[in-house]
Simulated scan of single mutants.
Amino acid sequence: MRPLAAAALLLAAAGAARADAVEALRDFVREAKTGRAAFTQTVTAPDGAKKKSSSGSFEFARPNRFRFEYRKPYEQLIVADGQKVWIFDADLQQASARPLAQALGATPAALLAGGALDKDFNLSNLPSAQGLDWVQAMPRDKEAVFQSLRVAFKGRTLAAIEVVDSFGQHSRLDFNELATNVPVPAEDFRFVPPKGVTVVE
């Protein structure tokens, strides 16, 4: 085989591999009706100098119900019940709520738990890196609160999400032990403010 022909085949194969990452994301949104995973989140300041790490668990049930439960280094709960998104800070004994449509929009949570992937995002393929296949998901809404969103798959399994917000801060969520289409209790997506907690709506 001629070198140019071989190079063309390699490029075509690489393009097909990246296209598979976009299809993996579409398949995930279409086929994963429920799911749960452990996660580790790393937030890096715009200058790259400061990093903060946290960890917890994540659950979702389509459409528009999810639960992020942060356990370390401090407890925080983010729950979407299909109508509102609640944020509860246990240390501050404070809870806030916003209408779902207002809080969700074209956000990483919407990408994971929503159902309008191609309506809300422009998808494009990125080169594989760190042993993962990456997809760029850019919000169609020009008023979105982040600059860029990348989603990584290992094979057909969701592995990570990276977000750069409007201030240049980087956040990365790495998922472990992801299980999809498993029973998730409906009460996990309900939030009732504990007695004595300040509620801001």
Rank of each mutant, 00 (worst) to 15 (best):
K154R: 15
V199L: 06
L4E: 12
A32M: 09
V29S: 06
N125L: 05
P193M: 08
L112C: 06
P127Y: 04
N176I: 09
N181E: 06
S148T: 15
E23W: 03
F191R: 01
A109E: 02
A61E: 08
N64C: 07
T44V: 15
A160N: 03
D120A: 06
N181D: 13
A45F: 02
A37R: 02
S53N: 08
A160T: 11
Y74M: 14
A13D: 07
R190H: 07
K52Y: 05
S53Q: 10
L173I: 11
L100W: 11
L117R: 01
A159Y: 09
F28V: 12
F146L: 15
Y70I: 12
A37T: 10
D120I: 03
R65A: 08
A116S: 13
D89L: 07
K72S: 09
D81R: 02
Q169E: 10
L112S: 06
F153G: 08
A97Q: 06
E201P: 00
K195P: 06
A113R: 04
A12C: 11
M138T: 13
R190N: 06
D91A: 10
G155R: 11
Q76I: 08
L117E: 01
D20H: 06
R67E: 04
P46Q: 04
E187Y: 01
V163H: 01
Q169K: 02
F88Q: 04
E59S: 15
A5Q: 11
T157N: 10
A144N: 07
D20G: 14
Q83M: 03
A8G: 07
A6P: 00
A144V: 14
A90V: 10
D47R: 05
R67I: 06
Q136T: 10
L117C: 04
A12M: 14
L4S: 12
T180Y: 02
P193A: 12
V163P: 01
R71P: 03
A179K: 14
A113N: 01
A38T: 12
D81S: 09
G115Y: 02
G48P: 03
A186M: 11
R190E: 12
Q94M: 14
L111G: 02
A12F: 12
L158W: 04
L104M: 11
F175N: 07
K50M: 10
S148A: 15
S54E: 08
Q76D: 11
R190P: 00
V184M: 10
V151L: 05
K84V: 05
A97Y: 02
A8K: 05
L178F: 08
R65Q: 15
V145F: 07
K52H: 09
R62G: 11
V164W: 00
L126W: 00
S171H: 05
L4C: 00
L126Y: 02
V145M: 11
S54V: 05
A144D: 05
S55H: 00
A45T: 15
D91W: 01
P63K: 08
F60C: 09
R65V: 13
S171D: 10
Q136S: 14
Q136I: 11
L25N: 02
S57G: 13
G131E: 09
R26P: 05
A21H: 04
S148G: 15
M1R: 09
L104K: 01
R172L: 12
R36E: 15
R18I: 00
K51A: 13
A95F: 01
